[in-house]
Design a binder for these strands. Structure first.
Length: 212
DNA sequence: CCGGTGATCCACT
DNA sequence: GTGGATCACCGGA
């Protein structure tokens, strides 16, 4: 099993590997099974989606640095948080510094802190939330964890508000497919999920999805 | 399926 | 500074 130190090396290795592998998004699956912890809530990641920078029209970094995407251009291992349609979404920045690449965290299973997560989800929802739905979907995952805009840029590996913890187990079966609801570069198979998990969000194709 | 949502970006005063 | 378009979403029917 991974120990924290090994995991840390693993992430750095992944970031380093991105320099030698043209297709950075291939690093995405290494996050599956890892855990994200904030306060009393821990979520095991079961679905992620990769975004490159200059070569990826669907990426926030495609048109260069702005105030919103600044963290994407910084060093890997930090959290990029942004607002979308009244929700927040979060990414793990992959680095290296100056090269914008990030992995969107799309869904997870709550391992710890179900009551707190459920209370947060209930603030915006009338119907009761089943366990498997607590962190299902990018906005829901952020809400379950209590991530806010103040967590943008936090260091996930040391000293930050949000911690990335090693995987205790890896998905037995890896799903790979197109990204959800993106209007451009729609067919790049850069969404990765744990095919044994029921907490993976449903696939949706964007109405105006262009291929490349 | 559909409508609400609100931050962000850019082109234009 | 303003207006409009865009958007990696969610909830309820």
């Amino acid at each position: 099993m991974d120990r924290p130190g090994q995991h840390r090396r693993g992430v750095r290795q992944w970031r380093g590997g991105a320099r030698s592998v043209p297709s950075r998004p291939r690093g995405g699956p290494l996050l599956l099974g890892c855990r994200l912890r904030l306060g009393g809530v821990t979520v095991r990641l079961v679905e992620v989606e990769a975004y490159e920078g200059a070569d990826d029209p669907a990426s926030h970094a495609y048109r260069g640095p702005t105030r919103r995407n600044a963290v994407m251009f910084g060093p890997g291992g930090h959290l990029y948080v942004y607002a979308l349609h009244g929700s927040l979404c979060c990414n793990v920045v992959c680095g290296p510094e100056g090269v914008a690449t990030a992995v969107l965290l799309r869904a997870g299973e709550v391992e710890e802190g179900h009551d707190l997560a459920r209370a947060r989800r209930a603030e915006r929802r009338a119907a009761p939330v089943a366990d498997r739905d607590l962190a299902r979907g990018p906005g829901n995952l952020c809400r379950a964890l209590g991530i806010t805009a103040a967590d943008n840029g936090t260091d996930l590996l040391e000293g930050g508000s949000v911690r990335l913890l090693p995987a205790l187990r890896r998905p037995a079966t890896l799903g790979i497919g197109p990204r959800v609801n993106v209007s451009t570069a729609a067919d790049r198979p850069w969404r990765f999920w744990d095919a044994t998990s029921t907490a993976v969000s449903p696939f949706k194709r964007h109405p105006k999805a262009l291929a490349d």
